[in-house]
Amino acid sequence: MQFWVIQTLNSLALGGLLFLLAAGFSLIFGLMRIANLTHGAYYMLGAYIGVSILKVIPNLWVAALLGGLTVAVFGGLVERFILRKLAGNELGQVLVTLGFAYIIADFCLVVWGGDPIPVPTPEGLDSPIEIAGFMFPAYRLAVVAIALATGVALYLLMERTRLGAMIRAGVDDMQMARAVGIPVSRLFTIVFCLGSALAGAGGILGGPIMSAYPGLDFDMLPLALIVVILGGVGSLIGAFVGSFIIGFVYTFGIALFPQFAYVILFLPMIVVIAFRPRGLFGRQVA
């Protein structure tokens, strides 16, 4: 019984981390039609930068904030100076983002070395909580709570603010949005920075669970891709639901059938693609 409880919680925690990663990916894809393959690398970069910040300021939340900000600045620069110049060249943009993924991966290897770096669990959350006779690792509950809070905040941002309305307009009809005077160009940079920040912060928040290690980027990227394909591109709710589905499928897949975890991962994707090619909550066909 304890096994199921623990695995359920692990699933939720992974789902929460995936949501932080996939929400940004999905927003960027929805608005800018860029399949940002650097996104996994931003996650890893955030984890490593967080590790370095933790050495100076031993507080995980501060590290997540600063790590996310640093990655956001980097993402904004890439968007402004490289991706911007390739507008309309979708394949070129994909290859450039992949190129940056390799550059970041190797950069991290040079700076932080090849050994996994564990991230300490913040004090107060490092001991399990006992609820109804079961032990729950407190930090995982905290990650789930953060993901939920982020989801709500993003939802409110998208649905209740002027900025969100402009982003939605850009996703729905870019040309009309431009025509009515929405500064689409600035939105691009804002959304790209926001997506990068979420990925970077997710990386260090995931640190106490996954640690920071080389290859983390390309472990997370396919999961985020499958989440977005499953949930539908450009859809926040899709990213949310997809993240937790994949969190469960992957965690239980690894625990029960370690050899076939990736094959099992791919089953929900096939089912959804077969019946709804645009994904569960996607509006436009990808």
């Binding site: 994909v94 591109v233 791919f266 990808a286």
Partner: peptide, 20 residues
């Protein structure tokens, strides 16, 4: 799918094989 959707699907499929 076509376009970028096709790209992401082919990428996801090949990553499944790689992981396996």
């Amino acid at each position: 799918a076509t376009g970028l959707g096709f790209l992401m699907l082919t990428l996801a499929l090949s990553q499944v094989l790689w992981g396996t």
